[in-house]
Computed example of a mutant assay.
Amino acid sequence: MHNNSQQQALGFLGGTFDPIHFGHLRPALEISEALSLRKLFILPNHIAPHKSASHCSAKQRSEMVRLAIQQQARIDIDTRELNRATPSYTIETLKELKALYPTTPICFIMGMDSLISFDTWYQWQEILNYCHLIISQRPKWHCQFNSTVQEVVDRCSTTDKHDLHNLQSGKIYFQSTTQFDISSTEIRQLLKNNISIDYLVPEAVNDYIKEHQLYR
């Protein structure tokens, strides 16, 4: 069953990616390889217009993602949330993806901090009906969850990566990844202060930022 490409799971990693950097890209690649995902899609979120004044346009954010992944066959971009006029809830995006890929398991990738606050997400009880959750975590890092989240983790977690391909949804899988202490906020701050961001972002992204004088 595992080798049927119809069944091989797809991954989705949401975020603002403003700008995308190695702290996003390296874990994405590691998860894609470790779990044999058919493809991993970077899913840039919508940013409200009043917020984006100091940042960059949806088009520029997606362009930087494209530049960052151009050499990488395992990773792609999904712009559905950028093309909406309003912010979208994860559950709405998952319903859309499920309609698009009715027989393919979907793995939604998040960091440990998102899992810790999982019970505050809009319609969080529904989310695992549409996907598996892949939690990108520091090696050997164990976490305290509140009792609501702990109950979901106890009920849904699996250590068998085949479950992610053989079942449509409903599992939580913890994957150790390289965690770089880099944030988009810090990168924007460095640029504002005219400090180099070399080695924090792919070179093509760095060139694009310089060329368009972003985040100045």
Rank of each mutant, 00 (worst) to 15 (best):
T158M: 11
V153I: 12
K192C: 05
E186F: 01
H142Y: 04
D154A: 13
V149L: 12
S196M: 08
Q144C: 02
D198Y: 02
H142E: 14
I182T: 05
Y173N: 05
Q175C: 13
I127C: 08
F180K: 06
D198M: 07
S176L: 08
T177I: 15
T158Y: 08
Q189I: 00
L190W: 00
C131F: 01
C131H: 03
D160T: 00
H162C: 07
L191D: 05
D160I: 01
S183E: 10
T159K: 15
E186H: 09
W141F: 11
L200G: 01
S184H: 04
D198W: 03
K161V: 02
H162V: 00
T177W: 13
P202M: 12
I172D: 06
R188Y: 07
R155T: 01
G170L: 06
N146M: 12
D163T: 02
S196I: 02
T178E: 14
Q189T: 05
S176Y: 06
S147Y: 09
D181S: 14
Q175I: 02
V153S: 02
Q150D: 14
H142L: 09
Q150K: 14
H132P: 04
L164E: 10
L164K: 10
I197R: 11
K192M: 12
N166K: 10
N166Q: 12
K140W: 03
S136E: 06
N193M: 08
D181Y: 03
F180R: 06
C143H: 05
V149K: 09
S147E: 15
W124D: 05
T185G: 11
